[in-house]
């Protein structure tokens, strides 16, 4: 036998030892489990990344968000409209430097289709405290079906660097019982 800096002489295509065979087999099985877990969760699990994905013009998305705000606005906080859409509807959330627009008021246990997009840079839609994160990319509309499972006040942080005010970008989702 020789170390890794020695040129192997003759034929080195030899049968592996028992220990190696055992480990390679087990490691391979583990890899297959890791692989199958993902499609499996699409079938039985409640958290997936599928959504309805499409491209959008940033200005058009902003206009759509504004119409959504006018239609369902119920209040205002710190200059940002608070919007309470009916259960089952399409809701819109626009990221822009450095604000999540608008504030949403949802009902626990109800399902909504949440459209995410950006007016300017990449942003990171990060829901505190449940730690749910999606990437928000300008020019793309990510429509995710969401079902908040617990009432409370959730904060939306931005976790993709979007400029010097990145750490000031905080929005809100209120979930009522």
């Amino acid at each position: 036998m020789h170390s890794g800096i020695v040129s192997p002489q003759g034929v080195w295509w030899k049968d592996a030892g028992k220990a190696e065979k055992l480990w390679v087999t087990i490691a391979f099985i583990w890899c297959i489990i890791l692989f199958l877990a993902m499609p499996f969760w699409h079938i039985v699990g409640g958290q997936n990344t599928t959504g309805v994905r499409g491209t959008t013009d940033p200005m058009a998305f902003m206009e759509r968000t504004n119409r959504f705000v006018t239609e369902f606005q119920v209040g205002e906080e710190k200059g940002i409209p608070v919007v309470a859409p009916p259960a089952g509807s399409h809701v819109y959330m626009l990221g822009r430097a450095y604000q999540w627009y608008p504030i949403l008021k949802l009902k626990a246990g109800s399902t909504y289709t949440l459209h995410l997009s950006s007016l300017d840079f990449n942003h990171g839609f990060a829901v505190f405290p449940i730690n749910l994160n999606f990437q928000v990319v300008p020019g793309y509309d990510y429509a995710l079906t969401i079902t908040p499972n617990q009432a409370g006040e959730y904060k939306i942080m931005c976790n993709e660097f979007c400029g010097i005010g990145h750490h000031l970008m905080v929005g809100k989702v209120i979930v009522e019982p």
Partner: peptide, 8 residues
């Protein structure tokens, strides 16, 4: 993961 909001 299974404990957060349903999303998909």
């Amino acid at each position: 993961l299974s404990m957060i909001w349903k999303v998909g």
